[in-house]
Nucleic acid binder design. Structure first.
Lengths: 209, 209
DNA sequence: GAATTAATTGAACGTTCGTTTTATTCTCGT
DNA sequence: ACGAGAATAAAACGAACGTTCAATTAATTC
């Protein structure tokens, strides 16, 4: 046999990405074989190499697109206001929403960094750093304005990101809590953590329509 | 050749554990081969099977001992007092200290859960749950006593553990901050997060001499 | 409808994997 | 001095790994 009826490169590539994210999130990059991935897609292993030159390149592509998507989402959700509390609220809400909606690719991006080559790793870390820098700037502005109580901006930024990313460990989409409820709970923890009194108007400014 | 001069089962087994923790923490369980591990120890791959029946059994042993060590450390560090703030402080200090001192095995225990079989995974998760239960009890007591402000005890417990475990991501033993300084910074963030006013006496009750 | 391009198969490559087997050498109690 | 058993080496096992390649068919173009 050879080309199958109804085959379409675009659809196959999308199916590969989707299957790869879900399989790698569940079993880990090293534990997923190209044959296993191909079987999930419904093709032979050799067909994968039409779309991605190597297994690592596939992983790198998934991670890069995840990080670029996160930065793009934040660019769309960020507020023009100068109030650090409103900006922090927008950051937390965007982060929670994005990660809850992409649990699998978040898992991949957080857990499989060590499977990247040096150059690819550097690129992903650069994206991650520029995202964290956004939060550090908010915290620094808030600390200088006196609305936040922060010992160490860098350490607090890492702690907050660690905390709010942890939502993907336990959150399942079909549970008692909605994404909005979870986001609000994490937001109030974040606000207390930064020593911010949360004013009424911030509580109702949602980053997403 | 066969048995080598100066060979000693006890020392070999200890060397295997040590090398396995460090290699798996760095490269991941799936990426480390038995031959690579044996080379690090300085023996042939077959010699490993004298001490651990399978590769997964080695991983499971490392994880189980890590979790048992964590629970034992908490048993030794816990305070008899009824004050939830002092108990929470003891919990955070013990957690930070333990994890900073065992960065590698913590990494293994947190990252390699998916490489365990169902039965082994269940055992590790049972240990983890009983540890988390300790924190939940402290938070619940504090909330009932009115010294903590907590929306959701379970969610807050996960958030705190996620946050304070994150220390191993960035902390390196030879940096500007000592373990004690890091622990105090995380403790003050935890106290603010739980809405606790930290009284003077708690600030100086160290769980470890 | 022939020529061209896109998509996929099936078989094979050399390598490495976890593990087993067998033989050999060292250590230690007696 | 010696027998027993602990500790290891060396070689081999079949299976699985990522990847390549030639062949083949479906879709597209003219």
């Amino acid at each position: 046999m050879a080309r199958t009826t109804g085959s379409d490169g675009g659809r196959t590539e999308a199916a590969i990405r989707e299957a790869a994210i879900s399989l790698i999130a569940r079993y880990g990059y090293e534990a997923v074989s190209m044959r296993q991935l191909a079987a999930e897609v419904g093709v032979q292993a050799a067909a994968l190499y039409r779309y991605f030159p190597t297994k690592e390149d596939l992983l790198f592509t998934l991670m890069r697109e995840h990080m670029e998507g996160l930065l793009a989402a934040w660019d769309a959700a960020r507020l023009a206001t100068a109030d650090p509390r409103a900006r922090l609220a927008a950051f937390v809400r965007n982060h929670i929403r994005f990660h809850v909606e992409r649990r699998h690719s978040t898992h991949v991006s957080n857990m499989e960094l060590r499977s990247l080559s040096r150059d690819n790793l550097t690129q992903i870390l650069r994206l991650r750093t520029s995202y964290e820098k956004e939060l550090r700037q908010i915290l620094r502005d808030g600390a200088e304005a006196g609305v936040f109580v922060i010992d160490d901006v860098g350490l607090t930024a890492i702690a907050i990101i660690q905390m709010i990313t942890g939502v993907i460990v336990w959150f399942r989409p079909d549970e008692r809590l909605s994404v909005e409820e979870v986001a609000e709970t994490y937001l109030s923890m974040t606000m207390r953590l930064t020593g911010a009194e949360m004013p009424r108007e911030v509580q109702h400014v949602h980053a997403h329509a």
